[in-house]
Structures are given as structure tokens and as C-alpha cells.
């Protein structure tokens, strides 16, 4: 086992690096894009809300893999082909952006009108109430499920292997075909993913409070 790991460690690390790049990029984009969609969803402009709603439903009810194929093969056929990495990133952001939007929406909507009324009764302006009463609570409510979504994004990067992007799972698949060391490969993959997801989970948990205070 050790011999195997030693021999192929650099290959796995390369794959893990691509996974991390993909995941971090997607997470960063989704944090913003999800909020945009959520705001659109909650907007009073009927058309915008419907559009956002339709987008969310579409993403939630179609598999990521199909979206990846659609973008990768479809755009290429249409003339503006994207690289595997770009296609995968786009699909990840579109799919997870919808879930993130729902998380944001849940956080924003769960705040009762009473909170705002309470603030006004104490003589605070609506903006102040929003900033020190509403927003911290919304953030606190949103961070844990968002953190969970980040873990899902990380795991979803494995699906991008289907279009031969050189992330960790793809590396594992190639090695499985070339060597017979399936068990070793699986354990290395599992270890890498478990470490990565554990890091994300821990980081989120540690920062739950800090993000709330920041706001």
C-alpha cells in the first residue's frame, strides 16, 4: 500500500489540486450568484421573481451530469465551446447557485416582521434595524446550510470527471484502468475527499460565529 501511494502520490496531488481549484472557484461564485438569484426571487417585480423561480426549479430538478453534458457538448456544437474545466465550473455554479438561492431565501424569509417592528418601536431607522437586528440573524441562519452546500459542491466536482477534467476522481479512474490497485486507489481517494470535506466543515463551523459578528 505504501509503495503504491509513494509511487503515485504526485499524480493524486495534481488531481486534488484541480479539485480544490474547481471547488473554490465554484464556492466563491455561488456565494454571490446565489444571493443575486435569491434577491431576484424575492423581488416585487413579477417577471424577475418568476424568472428566478423558474431557474431554481429547473436546476433543482435536473441532474448535474446532464447539465455538464449539455454545456460541454452543446456549446461546442454551437460554436463557442468551453474547456472541460470551464464547462464543469459553469454547471457547478448554475446547479448549486439555485440551491444556495433557496438557502438565502429561507434565511431572509424566516425573519419575522415583528423583529423589524420591534426595532422601529425602539426608535431605530429601518436601515439600522436591518443591519444590527435582521442581518446578523439571517447570516447565522444561513451559514450552516450554506456550509453544507459547499461540501456538496466539493463532492460534485467528482462528476466533472465525466468530461475528462483532470480532477481527483478522474485521476483515480485512469489509475484504476491502468493498474489493478483498485482498493489502494479507493482508499487514497476516500482519504483525500474526507480530509477536504472535513476541512470545509470545520472551517464553516469555526467561522459561523465570526461571520455573524462581522456583520
Amino acid at each position: 500500500m505504501n509503495a503504491f501511494v509513494a509511487r503515485y502520490l504526485s499524480v493524486f496531488l495534481d488531481g486534488a489540486l484541480v479539485t480544490v481549484e474547481l471547488a473554490l472557484a465554484a464556492i466563491a461564485i455561488v456565494i454571490v450568484w446565489g444571493l443575486v438569484v435569491a434577491v431576484a426571487r424575492l423581488s416585487r417585480v413579477r417577471g424577475l421573481a418568476a424568472l428566478a423561480g423558474g431557474y431554481i426549479q429547473l436546476m433543482r430538478n435536473t441532474p448535474l451530469l446532464v447539465q455538464i453534458y449539455f454545456i460541454y457538448f452543446g456549446f461546442a456544437m454551437a460554436g463557442f465551446g468551453l474547456s472541460g474545466f470551464a464547462s464543469g465550473l459553469l454547471a457547478l455554479c448554475l446547479q448549486n447557485g439555485a440551491y444556495a438561492a433557496e438557502i438565502y431565501r429561507g434565511g431572509l424569509q424566516s425573519l419575522s416582521v415583528k423583529q423589524i417592528e420591534g426595532g422601529r418601536a425602539l426608535g431605530m431607522t429601518p436601515w439600522l434595524t436591518f443591519r444590527i437586528v435582521v442581518l446578523p440573524q439571517a447570516v447565522a441562519r444561513v451559514v450552516p446550510p450554506l456550509g453544507n452546500q459547499f461540501v456538496l459542491i466539493l463532492k460534485d466536482t467528482s462528476i466533472v470527471s465525466a468530461i475528462a477534467v483532470g480532477e481527483l476522481t478522474h485521476v483515480g479512474k485512469l489509475l484504476s484502468e491502468r493498474t489493478a490497485a483498485t482498493y489502494e486507489i479507493f482508499f487514497v481517494l476516500a482519504a483525500f475527499y474526507l480530509v477536504m470535506t472535513s476541512i470545509v466543515t470545520t472551517l464553516v463551523r469555526l467561522n459561523e460565529r465570526r461571520v455573524a459578528l462581522l456583520v
Binding site: K155, T169, G172, F186, A190
Partner: peptide, 22 residues
């Protein structure tokens, strides 16, 4: 639960697919 939630489904499927014959 920790393992299942931390490892992608695709990796588990690959493992089954490639490891089972052996």
C-alpha cells in the same frame, strides 16, 4: 455516516465497478 457523507457517490460507484471483479 462520516465516510458516506464525505466521499462522493461517484467514487463509491467506481469502487464497486472496478473492485468487484477482483
Amino acid at each position: 455516516l462520516y465516510v458516506i457523507r464525505g466521499v462522493p457517490l461517484l467514487v463509491l460507484l467506481f469502487f464497486m465497478y472496478y473492485a468487484l471483479p477482483y
